[in-house]
Design a protein around this nucleic acid. Structure first.
Lengths: 198, 198
DNA sequence: TGATTAACAGATATTGAAATCTGTCATCGC
DNA sequence: GCGATGACAGATTTCAATATCTGTTAATCA
């Protein structure tokens, strides 16, 4: 297939995701990727210096796809509390959907992410910044009271780990999950709340 | 050793923990345990029906040892907010100490606990009950305002997962850990706080 | 008599030889 | 000249033979 199409990093990544989906993380080889593209595996090494860097690039794409819809919410306008809640619920929903739609692919991406832990750290920092941005808006609007938006944002991120950190993915099948999220979000929003004007 | 001492479940558990410490979870066999006690492995099977049940008993002991000091705090008297904070900080400290003192043994116990997940569930429920008890005290004292102590307790437990759930153990080496805990606890306590009397 | 043992069958783990994969590079074809 | 190739060395994985372990039981011992 694709006889006269140039070989690009983009096409290689596409093929790699395909191979990962078909063979799983453990069985997927560079030779498989090359075969899927109908080229020699040496050609793949022209675009990616190693198998590790190829995996890293796949992980990066995945993290970017997770990030995009959240960034949109963080940058939106409107009352901060509702926005924070929507942002958090969206983050949970994205993760929960990924794991329930295709658990195998989720664990695959999860392992890739663990290998690229530096990239994950940057991803997390970006998410905390987005929360901090919403918190700052809330302070400006007078609805939130926090001494430092960045540390409070991190606290919110930490407090919700149970519902977004992949290490807890198995616990997301709990039928009471939605209720637990509701109670926690209410508690956190109350903790951020500025006292009413007198 | 111990030629004329009767073989009890207690002694077997002691020996099992010893063997686990010396050989690690993967290498520890029932034969090793029997050898440590200077009996045949058949004798061990007189007290525990299977290797799995032996492991389960070890896990149970471990969970009970974790639970004891926390139960004491939960049952104590005094202002609820300070008690809740002390309870949570003690739980974090116990876990963090275990993992930093002997990381290998921690992962061993962690795997045992995963196998005995029913027991872990009961353990967690007990901890949530302890939090709920403190929250109820706080409501009586007029310092906390919660609609349902049990669900709020679970929210507190969930919100602090990042600092007590073993899945996050690797993240506990963070030099800013203490600061993160401080900010989160302040946020949660503010979220539980009853409005001042007018 | 009741705990302990040694021998045993089936399940699980180890090991080392053979196969496959990763990453390199001299060579090829356009 | 430039991207692609395929043959290659060293690293990694697979697989099947072998060894060890789990759990049972009939025989032993005190």
């Amino acid at each position: 297939m694709n006889e006269n199409v140039v070989l690009t990093p983009e096409r290689i990544l596409e093929a790699t995701e395909d191979v990962l989906r078909r063979f799983g993380l453990a069985k997927a080889t560079v030779v498989d990727v090359a075969r899927a593209l109908d080229v020699s595996h040496g050609s793949v090494y022209r675009h990616f210096p190693s198998k590790a860097s190829l995996r890293e690039a796949v992980a990066k794409r995945w993290l970017e796809r997770l990030n995009a819809p959240l960034a949109k919410i963080a940058e939106a306008s409107g009352p901060a509390p509702a926005r924070l809640e929507r942002w958090l619920r969206t983050m949970f929903a994205i993760k929960h959907k990924k794991v329930s739609d295709d658990p195998e692919m989720f664990t695959t991406y999860l392992t890739l992410a663990r290998e690229a832990c530096k990239m994950v750290k940057a991803h997390k920092d970006g998410l905390v910044d987005q929360i901090a941005h919403i918190l700052s808006d809330g302070v400006k609007q007078g609805t939130f009271q926090v001494t430092d938006a960045k540390t409070s944002a991190r606290a919110i991120f930490d407090a919700t780990s149970r519902f977004h950190h992949p290490a807890h993915a198995e616990e997301w099948r709990d039928p009471q999950l939605a209720a637990r999220i509701d109670v926690l979000l209410a508690l956190l929003l109350k903790g951020l709340e500025a006292p009413r004007k007198r």
